[in-house]
Simulated assay, not measured.
Amino acid sequence: MNTQKSIYLITLGLFTLAILGSIVNSIINYDEVAATFIKLGYPIYLIHLLGVFQFIGLLLIIINKTYWILEWVYAGFFMNLVLGAIAHLAIKDGNGAAAVICTILLFLTYILGKKVRNYEDEKNQRKSFYTPYKVT
């Protein structure tokens, strides 16, 4: 196994642990998380939705089957982390360091994942996805 793939797997593992830790924290410390959501002005039912979608996103990154789904998953995680950090900074509830670290891990996973996977296969898959069918 080459070094890039090793680094990719390590960063993916760290990112997965961080997101799973967030999900478990939301379950174990539900009252504190709910109080933070109320303080941020978000509805409480978003706690469950975020947990479910984060878990599905992790599964999709690990399974890693199609290019365009993977792009949407990374975009969703990026928006979740950046907007969460901004929300915490706006109400002066911490400095958002955990979200910044997770965003860095997300970028590393994204960039190294592109290098590890065969980029030519992704380009061909993208072309076949966007190419309209020929009607005869």
Score class of each variant (00 low, 15 high):
Ala75Ile: 11
Leu9Phe: 10
Ile19Glu: 00
Met79Arg: 03
Phe15Tyr: 09
Ile111Arg: 13
Thr16Met: 05
Leu12Ile: 09
Thr11Trp: 00
Tyr74Gln: 01
Leu50Lys: 11
Val52Asn: 03
Leu81Asn: 09
Lys65Ser: 07
Ile111Val: 12
Val33Asn: 04
Tyr110Ala: 12
Ser6Met: 15
Ile86Asp: 05
Leu106Glu: 02
Gly96Pro: 03
Glu32Asp: 14
Thr103Lys: 05
Ile86Gln: 03
Ala98Glu: 12
Lys92Trp: 14
Asp31Pro: 12
Val73Arg: 10
Tyr30Ala: 11
Thr3Glu: 11
Leu58Glu: 05
Leu60Asn: 07
Lys39His: 12
Ala97Gly: 15
Ile56Cys: 01
Phe78Asp: 01
Gly41Tyr: 04
Leu58Tyr: 05
Val73Pro: 04
Phe37Thr: 01
Trp72Pro: 08
Ile47Cys: 02
Val24Asp: 00
Leu58Ala: 02
Ile69Trp: 11
Asn64Cys: 03
Ala85Met: 15
Thr66Cys: 12
Leu60Cys: 08
Gly57Met: 05
Gln54Lys: 14
Ile56Tyr: 03
Val73Gly: 02
Lys39Leu: 14
Asn64Pro: 00
Val82Tyr: 08
Gly76Thr: 00
Asp31Ile: 04
Ile7Phe: 01
Lys65Asp: 03
Ile63Cys: 15
Val82His: 05
Leu14Ile: 09
Ile91Lys: 06
Leu59Lys: 13
Gly57His: 04
Ile28His: 04
Ile56Val: 10
Leu49Asp: 06
Leu83Gly: 01
Val24Gln: 04
Leu46Gly: 01
Tyr8Trp: 13
Ile27Met: 15
Asp31Cys: 06
Gly84Leu: 13
Leu49Lys: 11
Leu108Gln: 12
Leu70Glu: 05
Ala34Arg: 13
Val82Ser: 08
Trp68Lys: 06
Ala18Ile: 07
Thr66Trp: 15
Tyr8Gln: 14
Leu81Thr: 02
Leu46Tyr: 04
Ser26Val: 01
Asp93Lys: 12
Ile62Arg: 07
Ile63Gln: 09
Gly96Asp: 02
Ile69Asp: 00
Leu46Arg: 02
Leu50Thr: 14
Ala87Lys: 10
Lys5Tyr: 01
Leu40Gly: 07
Ala97Gln: 14
Ile56Met: 02
Phe15Ser: 10
Ile61Leu: 15
Ile47Trp: 00
